[in-house]
Design a protein around this nucleic acid. Sequence first.
DNA 1: GCGGATCAC
DNA 2: TATGGTGATCCGC
Length: 424
Amino acid sequence: PTSAFTNAFTNAKAGMEGVDREMVKRVVHDMSVNSAHFATESRKEAAVEAKILAMKKRAASIRPSALATIKAAVDDRVARMEASRDLTKTWVHVDMDSFFASVHILERPELRDVPMAVGGMSMISTANYAARKFGVRSAMPGFIAKKLCPQLVFVDSDFAKYKHYASLTREVFKEYDPQFDAGSLDEAYLEISAYCAGKSMTPADVAEALRREVREKTKLTCSAGVAPTRRLAKVCSDANKPDGQMVIEPTRDAVAALLSSLPVRKIGGVGKVLDRTLAAFGIATCGDLLRERALVVALFSEVQSDFLLGVAIGVGGEARPARPPGWAPQRKSLSQERTFAPTADARALAAKIAALAEEVAAGLARENLLTRTVTLKMKRADFEVAQRQTSLPRPTNDAQTISDAALRLFRGEKNTHGSLRLLG
DNA sequence: GCGGATCAC
DNA sequence: TATGGTGATCCGC
Ligand SMILES: Nc1ccn([C@H]2C[C@H](O)[C@@H](COP(=O)(O)OP(=O)(O)OP(=O)(O)O)O2)c(=O)n1
Ligand SMILES: [Mg+2]
């Protein structure tokens, strides 16, 4: 597992081993460089660079004595976090392998060995491993993927199918942890310490058994990570994909050994921007993060430094979220948005808004919910996004009321919006 | 309360 | 020719 781990992690994503990344970068760039999308992305990146530069200036102005004071306080904070470390939980993160693509392969086995992606020329949801060899991946426009891999076959997505197979996997998860947490259709967190004790099985054997059962019941493969925290379990589930697993022993040393060279970008919640920001301060791995803890606390908000310190020492996310019996997830928003051929025709746009309002109202009614606010989302033809929000005098699920509110917001932007490519 | 940004999948 | 949809969270007003 260790060597596979190292190998997989020198690459961006499972299945990308051996991909000529420079070539992929060049093709993606060449296909994009003259587009409005590229221009907007470039502008956003410039804004990120500016923000980072401002942060560097701030860092340079911190007096060494101030940093030393911070350091002492940070060490105190880290010591408290360390004292709270809990190695008694056994978290498993299960993640289906190239989920959407694998579901289609079940019904069309001939697609297993030909490069295939779910989606179309505009956008790809995911790709099978044959396609990943060419650098094809999630969220890549199909026409670029096709340039990377001319033989690439597209398959239309089918959410009813994905939901069906997701429910089959959940039947299995339930046996191992009735309180399992499904983040999305294709993954779940399970806490299996009770199961292991009851069956006198090791966590590794339980993970093997779970994966075997998922395979038998669905004919789909999945990968698993086992660790004392959810965060680390998730890192591990990616390490030996596909159809593999990795276990971190529940000791402080094992956790520290893993973290010392683990790129921060592998941690859930660390995306492109935070990764770039940290990199600007010489922080690439969780080990770097721990070394630079004083700087981290000096530069980031309390919320973010709490998160980053937890990442650095591998604590956080070990407790099962406290939920009263009968608890059901409470949604905070419900939305509908749609991309279309860019148009500036105000009547046509207004009609789209009304249609979206109908759908949202139906969604609210279906879940017996009322909304207190309405947000209108607009994406201009040049991919710039703007949102306008309003609070209603009283909660509603009436389509007309929602539509009227959205149309008021829309008219308020009339002078600025011009041609749009998306409304929500 | 609002609007932009970031992140996950 | 062609760059998605849904939901959550945080920051700075
Ligand atoms: N930007 C994205 C990322 C993912 N998905 C969908 C398609 C995936 O099949 C599914 C699960 O996401 P994963 O990140 O787990 O990716 P896969 O399961 O496809 O591949 P892997 O084997 O790397 O987990 O979510 C999507 O629509 N858009
Ligand atoms: Mg997956």
